[in-house]
Design a protein around this nucleic acid. Structure first.
Lengths: 116, 116
DNA sequence: AGCGAACATCGACGGTTGTCAATGTCTATG
DNA sequence: CATAGACATTGACAACCGTCGATGTTCGCT
């Protein structure tokens, strides 16, 4: 799948503080909505937040199930959604899978939201 | 309902460029997710975009149905979701209803997203 | 080789969501 | 007052989503 989150597309690096110029097309709206749906969920927001707040910058699944109070398959499912959206990255090391933030992921999303 | 979008809550005005310090609680995640769900939809993103790109800053429903290609009740439903989320505001003038952007709405959301 | 631990995948179930047609409400106008 | 127009609300339906238990897969250890 891979959601192609970081299009930033239309190029021009101009800085419009609040609104923009022309309405975004159907395909742009689709991809942005798809990325936003990834974080428009309380559990996934908490997962991202926990990982972002960790000192190591990466957290394994076994340390995520307890804080959110959900089953391991459910947490695994949410993490997959976040990885597909380009917000998290997964690195398997031994038996464990470590999840970390993709550097520009969240801020890119935030920028697109602010730019309508 | 009213989603209470602009909490900005935890107060401290410190500026962490990318990540944050402590994971957000369940209630904060709930309200943020609720606000994000409002714009995590292609149609609603396009509606907001059209309104933001309008020169007058406000658009009536009759001028929104055609661009998105949906029925009037459906557009009305989406607009209500956006108003409840604190992103749009509604002003009825005569027979028409004019929708416009709430000034800090989108940027507040973007800020919260960037701050995990 | 065999076993256990960590994680992913599958199948299923209930709740939510986007959409429409039909109807209701209000306003301006003849 | 009656009529038409602009918008909101309702009810219904299909599609999607979050969750779980069960199972599969891979790795490390004895």
């Amino acid at each position: 799948m891979a959601v192609t989150l970081l299009e930033t597309t239309v190029s021009d690096a101009c800085c419009a503080p609040t609104s923009s110029r022309e309405p975004l097309g159907a395909s742009q709206a689709d991809s942005l909505a798809h990325a936003l749906k990834a974080i428009a969920d309380p559990t996934r927001l908490r997962l991202v937040s926990i990982i972002a707040a960790s000192t190591e910058g990466e957290v394994c699944v076994c340390d995520l199930t307890d804080p959110v109070g959900l089953s391991q398959p459910t947490v695994s499912h949410h993490l997959k959604v976040l990885v597909d959206a380009g917000i998290l990255s997964r690195e398997k090391r031994g038996t464990w899978a470590y999840y970390s933030l993709v550097p520009g992921g969240l801020s890119s999303l935030a920028t697109q939201v602010a730019g309508v």
